[in-house]
Design a protein around this nucleic acid. Structure first.
Length: 405
DNA sequence: CGTCCACGTCTAC
DNA sequence: TAGACCTGGACGG
């Protein structure tokens, strides 16, 4: 799931598995890949990684052997090289035995071990890419997670840019300003703040410009008067501010992974239960102007694309209601609270029904009753598309039906 | 079997 | 604002 958090977890994974490991020889590319060769060959080198938004940079560092000063054989690197990766829709890193290379391992780094292991860039769909001797892509903004203040400054100082005329849900995918946000994060972020996806980005953000400058003034005053800087306004900003959420929400995902993240033993159940809106049963969705599925709850806002289908997107997550027929007031309340505190409250209302490492369930029915209102009336195109999805990767496990409760 | 869908960019009309 | 770029899983017939 390559958005900012997954790219960052990938960099942690590389640093962990490559710690103390010596690599050797050439970097090898799959036959089928159209990405450039990586012209780096070295008798002994190490690999480290960093991430920024939706990119990961590997640094290949030659190990200088004490004695051989000029034994730089021809074609052997003596300089470090950076390789910058973008993951497309399906990229990830995996460290495995040489004889257990994953399918679609398109770029490979070989260890100098008796029974050799391989760090692979795996990318089923091949939308990912890498750049040898690479740098962070120009035109991508600061990382929403790890360069927060410059990220914020970059947005606030460019609010007159016409891109902010567009619906906020589409602007959130603009990596020039929101490097690291992707399709599931935009849904989760807007959902938590109850911001309709199809309102202009500037209308949501322009109040921040004022707030930010007020903050600065206040900071100055405080530094003069020596007052404390916590007042009510400030505290409200902590959670209601869209830019702050673009920082915090991805970090929550990073912290789900925590220690020992390993794509080999991918266990998405924690992630699935973390999702509150994206691909969650009962949420609405529409195609944005780029044909991407926007998940949301309630009012879509005025800038919905003409003729936008209420798509039949895949539902990956079913949450369970505990209360029999109490309904949605509760949900709404728990949601706004969830923004504030780490709540164990959430489980009281929603509970994922995911099996082990796999995703989730099957079909819902179309039940034509109630179904809230038709707040979204783009075009009555067939049933309001509910679908099933989810598959269990390895396990066969055909799961539940919609027994419910 | 075929169709639709997927966590993202890219470039071309 | 379309497509192109790809593979594969879920679902429908």
């Amino acid at each position: 799931m390559p958005e900012g958090p997954e790219l960052h977890l990938a960099s942690l994974y590389v640093n962990e598995v490559c710690d103390g490991v010596v690599f050797t020889g050439a970097v090898r590319k799959s036959e089928v890949s159209k990405c450039p060769d990586v012209p780096f060959t070295c008798e002994a080198y190490r690999i480290t990684a960093t991430s920024r938004g939706k990119e990961v940079k590997l640094t290949l560092t030659p190990i200088k052997s004490a004695d051989s000063k000029r034994t730089v054989k021809s074609g052997q690197a003596d300089q470090a090289m950076d390789v910058v990766f973008r993951f497309g829709m399906s990229g990830y890193f995996r460290f495995s035995a040489e004889d257990e290379l994953p399918k679609h391992a398109h770029l490979r780094f070989y260890t100098k071990e008796k029974s050799c292991r391989v760090l692979s860039f795996v990318d089923t769909r091949r939308f990912g890419s890498w750049q040898p001797s690479g740098t962070w892509q120009r035109d991508r903004g600061p990382c929403v997670m790890f360069e927060y203040s410059s990220f914020r400054e970059n947005v606030v100082s460019h609010l007159s840019d016409r891109v902010f005329d567009r619906p906020v849900c589409e602007v959130l995918l603009n990596q020039k300003y929101f490097n690291g946000i992707g399709n599931y994060l935009r849904a989760e972020i807007l959902y938590r703040l109850n911001i309709p996806p199809f309102v202009s980005a500037r209308s949501v953000l322009e109040s921040l410009e004022v707030q930010d400058s007020l903050e600065k003034e206040k900071a100055v005053k405080h530094s003069i008067t020596g007052k404390k800087k916590s007042d009510k306004v400030k505290e409200e900003d902590e959670t209601s501010d869209l830019l702050r959420m673009c920082h915090m929400v991805p970090l929550e995902v990073v912290n789900l992974g925590g220690k020992g993240y390993d794509p080999a033993k991918a266990d998405y159940s924690g992630f699935m239960s973390w999702l509150q809106c994206y691909a969650v049963e009962g949420m609405n969705c529409l195609q944005d102007h780029n044909g991407r599925t926007m998940w949301f709850k309630g009012d879509p806002g005025p800038m919905v694309p003409k003729g936008s289908r209420s798509t039949r997107a895949k539902i990956l997550v079913k949450k369970e209601r505990n209360d029999d027929n109490a309904d949605k007031k509760k949900v709404a309340r728990s949601r706004s609270e969830s923004t504030l505190k780490k709540r164990p409250i959430k489980q009281e209302v929603t509970e994922i029904k995911a099996k082990d490492a796999s995703l989730s369930e099957a079909g819902s029915k179309k039940r034509k009753t109630g179904k809230t209102a038709e707040e979204t009336k783009p075009r009555r195109s067939r049933n309001s598309g509910e679908k099933a999805a989810a598959g269990s990767q390895r396990r066969s496990g055909r799961i539940a039906k919609q027994n419910s409760k």
